[in-house]
Nucleic acid binder design. Structure first.
Lengths: 234, 234
DNA sequence: GTCGAGCAACGAACACTGTTCGTTCCACGA
DNA sequence: TCGTGGAACGAACAGTGTTCGTTGCTCGAC
């Protein structure tokens, strides 16, 4: 099949007329997300990115919510290979840790997309594959099903909540991390200035409470969840 | 101060002219929330509830986000008394449980308001009081500060996530619980129909995975968190 | 007793949003 | 060769949050 070059005449009527597709739309949406944040991903903005109007998108995508979920599943897809290879890890805790880390890394690569993961259930195909990997590892370790179900719930929630905390300032429309840092500093000062007779513990623990977002803290929380689960090994 | 009755003349010009206030606005917003769900709480809808226009609200509320946070703090206020009395509970696990339960009950009374709790940090006064109660209980038990900070984080997240799961169908605009039940049934069928060679664990665990929302499950998850934390007692 | 200042209330408008309708136009199969 | 199904699209609708400029009221100072 040799590609027939576009005829030089008649090219003035329509610019290029390259066909749209769901994949192209999702890719464009993720491009906007990475550049401007989730709130900027509107149907008009995505259409503009593709050089067309918003109505054209509805032939490939049911509505904006579906587009958001497709974006999430596309990003989750970045972790599927990692997750499925982690199933063969001899140490089950290490396997679970690898899936969690891969999910966190993928979400962190895409601004505040984690907000989408907080609303709705992971029924898309890539999410299901990651869940299946989790289940295989935890069941393979011999944990009872009830505990496995709870643990998967908790791990997924922990990962997205951690990312969400780190991406918090995107939601406020801030551009730089300096602004975010200033905000947190100000918040800490506010807590320190609370009346110590009514909030003695809060005031005393300000620094400990506000030390979120770091890798060490994420790993430590992961350890605590997995250690808690390990108590239910037969 | 005897109240002077409104003069019968001149009443045609303005209906009543009762002064607006932040409390009145928040109360009206919660009324709309309870009746129609969070998505229905727009500045125009709240203003309509008060018989005025949206611009009038901005004298008492900075913007819609602040209104949402005020609503949340008002609802959290319903639990402050409970939380602060739980501090005197002799058993620290029982104390923490009481705060968590009170928070869950309060959030469940108000549709999908839990969505607001998922975005943003609890810096409003009532939330701070509840946090202080948590801290007092857990520190009083002798837990190290690092663990206490993590546990409070986890407990708050667990409560709101549990409520959010139960209120999921509000976000979809569904009215009745029958619709929600049908949706979950359909979702379960979808999972059961997955290819068993690629999703053996998911298919096998469908019923366990989808058994969310009940009180027993909430209590069980609470036990698991608290038991996990208890390992760090000196 | 009168005046002035400050502020709450508000009508109208702006710049957006998601979504739908009706039309146009093209590529493919009969 | 024609007919048809479906994608692309322009325009519009009904909303949204927020701001501006004006009005009208109330309270304190003179």
């Amino acid at each position: 099949m040799t590609e027939i070059p576009a005829p030089p005449w008649r090219t003035d009527k329509r610019p290029v007329r390259q066909p749209l597709s769901q994949d192209a739309i999702v890719a464009a949406a993720i491009r906007v997300l990475d550049a401007e944040g989730l709130d900027a991903v509107s149907m008009r903005r995505v259409a503009q990115e593709l050089g067309t109007g918003p109505a054209s998108l509805y032939a490939h995508v049911a509505n904006k919510d579906e587009l958001y979920e497709l974006m999430l599943d596309s990003v989750v897809g970045e972790t599927v290979a990692d997750a499925e290879s982690a199933v063969h890890e001899p140490d089950w805790q290490q396997g679970a840790r690898r899936i969690a880390r891969a999910g966190r890394d993928a979400l962190r690569r895409h601004r505040d997309l984690a907000r989408v993961a907080m609303t709705g259930f992971p029924f898309a195909t890539n999410s299901l594959r990651v869940t299946e990997a989790y289940l295989a590892i935890l069941r393979g370790a011999g944990l009872p099903d009830q505990i496995v179900a709870w643990a998967v719930d908790r791990l997924a929630l922990y990962v997205t909540a951690d990312v969400l905390e780190g991406a918090y300032y995107y939601a406020k429309g801030w551009k730089t991390e300096e602004q975010a840092h200033a905000y947190f500093e100000q918040a800490a000062d506010y807590l320190r200035a609370l009346p110590p007779e009514r909030f003695p513990n809060t005031v005393a623990m300000v620094d400990t409470l506000m030390s979120g977002g770091s890798d060490e803290r994420f790993e430590h929380g992961l350890d605590m969840i997995l250690d808690g689960v390990a108590r239910y090994l037969p």
